[in-house]
């Protein structure tokens, strides 16, 4: 956007106001995270102290040390990274191909098929739990990470297909047509032309799915009972016990568990913003 034509550029007062509002929004958004970090750095008795200390007077790393050395936290992290990575990659690959076909190929009942795909993701996950549970027991997949990957892939693919179809529909059909005239097959046009220019959209959709899988509790808690295969979302619950909530440990574990997602966002920030903006502006 040309800065001279921007309304923000023309109105210094509004710029200042915008900055203030953004700072306010940032503080409100970040406060729970900072509060969590502060709790993680407190001793047990300081956690429930009243009035509370925002910056702990006695900072300790004991909670972080305990999380890493006295529990299976790293196993949960490894499982989450593995399941999220494979699940999202597979779902994204499948969805991208499906979305391309639905957007650029002349398929009978295309709209109906698109809607049907979307409908499958509208079924509340909890309604599928019992049949999936029984199926997994019968197939001997219960208590395996591959089951989690299959379930997450199946659940995220319809939504990803729908989102990517939205992105692809905004691309000019002429690009594909020009590619075909230049000798590209439709398949090659997808890999050579469509995929490179759709990266922001694909990355945004994949990133949102990754956050969904990373945070999901329902599926990961229902299909895994052995400790060695639990995901981080389930593992965090070990600090909420019948004997009380271990706030310091819980917050330390939460702080560490959000790091991979933060890293993912930071690395893919530019493409994510482009992708979100592409979805926001028509024409």
């Amino acid at each position: 956007m040309n800065k001279k034509n921007s309304s923000l550029g023309k109105t210094p007062g509004l710029d200042f106001l915008t900055v203030i509002i953004l700072i306010g929004a940032s503080v409100i958004s970040l406060f729970p995270v900072l509060w969590g970090l502060s709790t993680a750095l407190k001793t047990d008795d300081a956690v429930t102290m009243f009035p509370p200390e925002i910056i702990p007077s006695n900072i300790t790393l004991d909670n972080f040390v305990s999380v890493f050395t006295k529990s299976d936290f790293m196993i949960y992290m490894r499982n989450s990274i593995l399941v999220t990575l494979i699940g999202v990659v597979v779902a994204t690959v499948v969805a991208a191909h499906a979305a391309y076909a639905l957007t650029f190929f002349k398929i009978r009942f295309r709209k109906g098929i698109s809607f049907f795909i979307l409908m499958t993701s509208m079924v509340p996950p909890v309604a599928l739990l019992v049949p999936l549970y029984m199926l997994s027991v019968k197939l001997n997949l219960y208590n395996t990470r591959i089951l989690l990957i299959l379930v997450y892939t199946a659940w995220r693919t319809p939504v990803l297909t729908w989102i990517m179809q939205g992105f692809f529909e905004k691309l000019p059909m002429e690009i594909v047509e020009a590619g075909i005239i230049d000798g590209c097959s439709k398949t090659k046009a997808f890999y050579k032309l469509i995929l490179p220019i759709s990266q922001p959209g694909i990355v945004s959709a994949a990133l949102l799915s990754a956050v969904y899988v990373w945070n999901d509790y329902l599926v990961s808690s229902s299909f895994i009972t052995t400790n060695e295969k639990k995901m981080i979302s389930v593992g965090l619950y070990q600090y909420i016990t019948q004997y009380g909530i271990k706030w310091g440990l819980l917050m330390a574990a939460v702080m560490v568990s959000i790091i991979p997602i933060i890293i993912l966002f930071v690395c893919l920030q530019r493409k994510f913003v482009d992708g979100m903006a592409a979805g926001a502006v028509k024409g």
């Binding site: 739990l129 019992v130 549970y133 029984m134 027991v137 219960y142 808690s221 229902s222 009972t225 052995t226 400790n227 389930v234 619950y237 070990q238 909420i240 016990t241 019948q242």
Partner: peptide
């Protein structure tokens, strides 16, 4: 095999329904 106490009953009932 360990479960959080808040989901313990649900897990056990679900398993029994599946015959395990």
């Amino acid at each position: 095999e360990s479960f959080n106490y808040s989901e313990f009953e649900a897990q056990a009932i679900q398993a029994a329904a599946a015959g395990t």
